[in-house]
Amino acid sequence: MTQPPSRPATAAEITRQFTDLGVRPGDLLMVHASLRSVGPVEGGADALLHCLLSAVGPGGTLMGYASWDRSPYEETLNGATLADDERSNWPAFNPATASVYPGFGMFNALLTGQPGARRSAHPDASMVAVGPLAATLIAPHALGDAFGPRSPIERFIAHNGKVLLLGAPLDAVTALHYAEAVADIPDKRRVTYEMPLLGADGLKHWYKAEDWDSNGILDCYAIEGQADAVERIATDYVATHRPPYGKVGNADCFLFPARDIVDFGIAWLERRHATR
Rank of each mutant, 00 (worst) to 15 (best):
G144M: 15
G216Y: 09
V31R: 00
V163T: 09
S126M: 07
Y73I: 07
G161Q: 05
V41R: 08
I157W: 02
A239E: 13
H141L: 10
T10R: 10
D124I: 14
R271K: 06
T19S: 07
D20E: 15
V182M: 03
E194Y: 04
D211Q: 04
P5Y: 07
D184P: 01
G131I: 11
P244R: 08
I157K: 01
R36Q: 06
D171F: 03
A139W: 14
C220T: 15
Q3K: 10
A45M: 06
G161A: 05
V100K: 06
A47R: 07
L255T: 08
V230E: 08
I217K: 05
A125K: 00
I266E: 00
P257F: 10
G60D: 04
A121Y: 07
G44I: 11
G105S: 10
H32W: 01
V191Q: 09
M195T: 14
G202Q: 10
D20A: 14
L269H: 04
P4R: 09
H273W: 05
D27L: 12
D171G: 15
E270N: 04
P257M: 08
Y65P: 01
R16W: 09
K188V: 13
R118Q: 15
G26W: 15
H241K: 15
H141G: 01
H32F: 01
P91C: 11
W90F: 11
T15I: 04
F107H: 08
G161W: 04
Q114C: 13
D187V: 05
T192N: 12
R7I: 14
A80S: 07
A183K: 02
P4S: 10
D219L: 10
A47Q: 11
R232C: 07
L143W: 03
H273Y: 14
A158D: 09
D171V: 13
R259M: 03
E210F: 07
L28Q: 02
D85E: 11
W268C: 00
A129W: 08
T275N: 14
Y178D: 00
D201A: 11
L197N: 12
T61C: 03
N89V: 03
L28I: 13
G246C: 09
G103N: 13
Q226V: 13
N94W: 02
F147I: 00
P152A: 00
V56M: 02
A121E: 10
T240C: 05
A96D: 11
E270P: 02
Y237W: 12
F264S: 03
G199I: 09
N108Y: 06
E13P: 02
I14C: 11
L143N: 05
F18E: 02
A92N: 11
I266P: 00
A129D: 08
F104T: 03
F256Q: 01
P244N: 10
E231F: 05
T81S: 06
E270K: 04
P25C: 10
R189W: 09
L82Y: 12
A258N: 02
A209N: 12
G26R: 07
A168Q: 05
Y178H: 15
V23K: 05
A168N: 07
F264G: 02
A267V: 01
F93E: 09
A125Q: 07
L62T: 08
G64S: 14
P102D: 12
D260S: 13
G116C: 04
V173T: 08
A168F: 04
